[in-house]
Design a protein around this nucleic acid. Structure first.
Length: 194
DNA sequence: TAGAGGATTGAT
DNA sequence: TCAATCCTCTAC
């Protein structure tokens, strides 16, 4: 069953990031079907400096974050990696969950082809890599989840298996870089970093 | 309009 | 530890 818009429009982005663990991200792009279980996420909110929309700052790049929850926010990082986020909260409350790692569950052969590798090892263990494996590009920025890109409901991960830590790669955010807003599944080999 | 830098990754 | 690589934002 596909997650309803209400799931994303909740006002607590950190809670949503936690609940997304275990759900299945599905893409149907260029007639190719791939799916992966979400095993690592990070929360971002307009209330803290790590977020592109900090303090309500709205630009051409991040305006999708100001849409109602349930759309994709895809942007280019470091000139070469597309990062995939799910926008949450209501309109003008710019919050999002960055999907950082997946465990492939369907279409693995397509992922291998997209990554140009032969072995199914750590091909989706990182936000830049999973978008490439899933076929997600910047043209998908702003698309409503449910068609080309979908997240399907699944059994929640037990709280004893969820690890909470600080987010990665946002040292510039000062004290906000210390917020415990990164979640991942314990002992899962697909997580980006241990 | 130019210059700096980034929610990363893989090779050294 | 460092370069690849290019889009976006900020300042002039």
């Amino acid at each position: 069953m596909i997650l309803a818009p209400e799931f994303y429009q909740h006002s607590n982005v950190v809670a949503i990031a936690r609940k997304l663990l275990g759900k299945v991200l599905i893409t149907h792009i260029k007639s190719e079907f791939t799916a992966g279980r979400i095993v690592e996420t990070e929360a971002y909110s307009f209330k803290e400096r790590g977020c592109h929309a900090y303090n309500g700052r709205k630009t051409l790049r991040n305006e999708v974050m100001f849409a109602p929850g349930g759309v994709a926010y895809v942007y280019l990082c470091y000139g070469m990696y597309n990062l995939f986020n799910v926008v949450t909260n209501k309109a003008d409350k710019a919050e999002a969950v960055l999907i950082r790692a997946l465990e492939p569950v369907a279409g693995q052969d397509i992922m291998l082809k997209r990554m140009n590798v032969e072995k199914l090892t750590r091909i989706t263990s990182g936000p830049g890599k999973l978008t490439r494996a899933m076929g997600i590009e910047r043209l998908h920025n702003g698309v409503l989840l449910g068609d080309t890109i979908t997240i399907e409901d699944a059994k929640p991960i037990g709280s004893s298996k969820i690890i909470t830590t600080t987010r990665i790669g946002i040292d510039y955010a000062g004290s906000d870089a210390k917020l415990p807003w990164r979640f991942y599944v314990k002992d899962n080999e697909w997580v980006s970093k241990w």
